[in-house]
Structures are given as C-alpha cells and as structure tokens.
Amino acid sequence: MKSEPAHLIRCLQQIHEVIRRANEIFADISQPSVCREVLLSEAGTTYILALSEVYQISRRLKDGLKARNLVNKQLQHRLHEVDLVWNNLLSFLVFGCSSSQMLVHSGNSHPVIFQGCCYHAGCANFWLNCVDCTLPRET
C-alpha cells in the first residue's frame, strides 16, 4: 500500500471500524449457546475468517513500516487501536462465547498486478471495498 501516512491512516481507521462493528455484533448476543451456534455455523466461520484477513492487512502495514524504518506517531497509534479492538474480539470469542474453535487465519493471499503495481489480493479487495475506489500507488 502507498507509504503516505494519510492513506495508511485511512486504511487503518477502516480496519478498526470493521473489527469494532464485529465486537458490537458479538456483544449483542446475550446467550453463550447462541454465540457458539453462530460461530460454529458456516456463515459464522466465514465471517471470523474474513475478519482475520482484515486484521492481517494491519499486520502487513506494520511490517512494511518496520521494513522501511518509517516512524509515525499517528500510524503507531492507529496500529495500537487496531490491536486493541482485535484482542478484544479474540477474548470475547474465546471467553464470552466459550468457543474452543477460535480461528485465526494467516491469509495466503496471492499477489495481484494492477497498472504496474503489485498488491496482496486481500489488501486490494479491502481497499476498494472499504477505503477508496482507487488503489493507492507506491511512490
């Protein structure tokens, strides 16, 4: 993804929002048995895997910043916020729903070449659907 902090911050804000909404959805389920049923359903499992893929985008961004030795307080703050909301979701799924089948997927995303730039398929998909209708370009 583009290394301009404003673009990365927007992406991280959207990642945070998607995971935050998931927290709200699961928090609204008052019965652990219903939560387990939802999580163990095909749709629930697919949803958790998709959320995990979204979280992995933040990990890729963090790794990219580290590899380029880019330090930005706003980006670090946004990454921390994403980690907090993700960890809240994980602990809710594990403890609040008593699910021993928590799924965390590392994402084997194949690269996509578009207009001479290489993107992780999951990253490009998330960007186009949640951040902006135009893929960022590396500068």
Results as ranks from 00 to 15, higher is better:
Val131Lys: 03
Val131Arg: 00
His110Asn: 06
Phe26Lys: 12
Pro136Phe: 01
Asp28Gly: 15
Leu8Thr: 03
Asn108His: 10
Val94Thr: 11
Glu81Asn: 07
Ser58Lys: 01
Arg60Thr: 03
Ala43Thr: 11
Ser33Glu: 15
Tyr55Cys: 07
Phe126Val: 08
Arg68Gly: 00
Cys118Ala: 14
Ala27Ser: 15
Ser58Asn: 01
Gln115Leu: 08
Tyr47Ile: 02
Leu40Cys: 12
Lys73Leu: 11
Cys133Pro: 00
Phe114Val: 14
Ala43Met: 10
Val131Trp: 05
Ala22Pro: 08
Gln101Val: 03
Glu24Ile: 09
Ser33Trp: 12
Asp132Ala: 06
Cys130Asn: 11
Arg137Tyr: 00
Leu84Arg: 12
Leu61Thr: 01
Cys35Leu: 12
Asp28Ile: 13
Thr134Asp: 03
Gln13Thr: 03
Phe126Thr: 08
Ala67Gly: 01
Pro5Leu: 11
Arg21Gly: 04
Tyr47Met: 06
Arg59Asn: 06
Ile57Ala: 02
Ile29His: 03
Leu79Arg: 10
His16Ala: 10
Ile57Trp: 03
Cys133His: 08
Leu40Met: 14
Cys117Arg: 14
Leu65Asn: 00
Asp63Glu: 08
Leu39Lys: 05
Arg78Thr: 12
Ile48Ser: 04
Asn87Pro: 03
Leu93Ile: 15
Pro111Gly: 08
Pro32Phe: 09
Ile113Lys: 08
Ser106Gly: 06
His80Lys: 12
Leu84Trp: 09
Val85Ile: 15
Gly64Tyr: 00
Ala43His: 09
Gln13Ile: 01
Val38Phe: 14
Leu128Asn: 04
His80Glu: 13
Cys117Ser: 15
Arg68His: 03
Leu90Pro: 02
Gln31Trp: 14
Leu128Ser: 02
Leu61Glu: 01
Asn108Leu: 10
Gln13Asp: 04
Arg36Tyr: 13
Leu39His: 03
Leu70Pro: 01
Phe92Lys: 09
Asn125Pro: 00
Leu135Ala: 02
Arg10Phe: 11
Leu65Pro: 08
Asn125Phe: 07
Asp132Cys: 00
Val104Glu: 14
Ser109Lys: 05
Ser3Ile: 09
Leu61Phe: 02
Val34Tyr: 13
Cys97Thr: 10
Arg137Asp: 00
Glu53Pro: 00
Ile48Thr: 13
Val104Phe: 14
Ala67Pro: 02
Arg68Phe: 01
Val54Gly: 01
Pro32Trp: 09
Ala27Cys: 09
Arg36Cys: 14
Asp63Tyr: 03
Ser33Met: 13
Ser91Val: 11
Leu39Glu: 04
Lys2Val: 05
Val94Gly: 06
Leu40Pro: 07
Leu61Gln: 00
Asn125Cys: 04
Met102His: 12
Leu75Pro: 02
Cys11Arg: 06
His7Asp: 14
Phe114Asp: 12
Ser98Tyr: 12
Leu8His: 04
Leu51Ile: 07
Ala22Val: 11
Lys62Thr: 00
Gln13Trp: 03
Ser106Tyr: 08
Gln101His: 06
Trp127Val: 02
Leu12Gln: 02
Ser41Tyr: 06
Ser109Val: 09
Leu90Phe: 15
Leu40Asn: 15
Arg10Met: 11
Val104Ala: 07
Ser3Gln: 06
Lys66Ile: 08
Pro32Met: 10
Thr134Leu: 07
Gly107Ala: 05
Cys97Trp: 06
Ile19Gly: 05
Ile25Pro: 07
Val18Tyr: 04
Met102Glu: 13
Tyr119Pro: 12
Ser30Lys: 15
Ile29Ala: 06
Tyr47Gly: 02
Asn72Leu: 04
Glu42Trp: 12
Arg137His: 00
Ser99Trp: 05
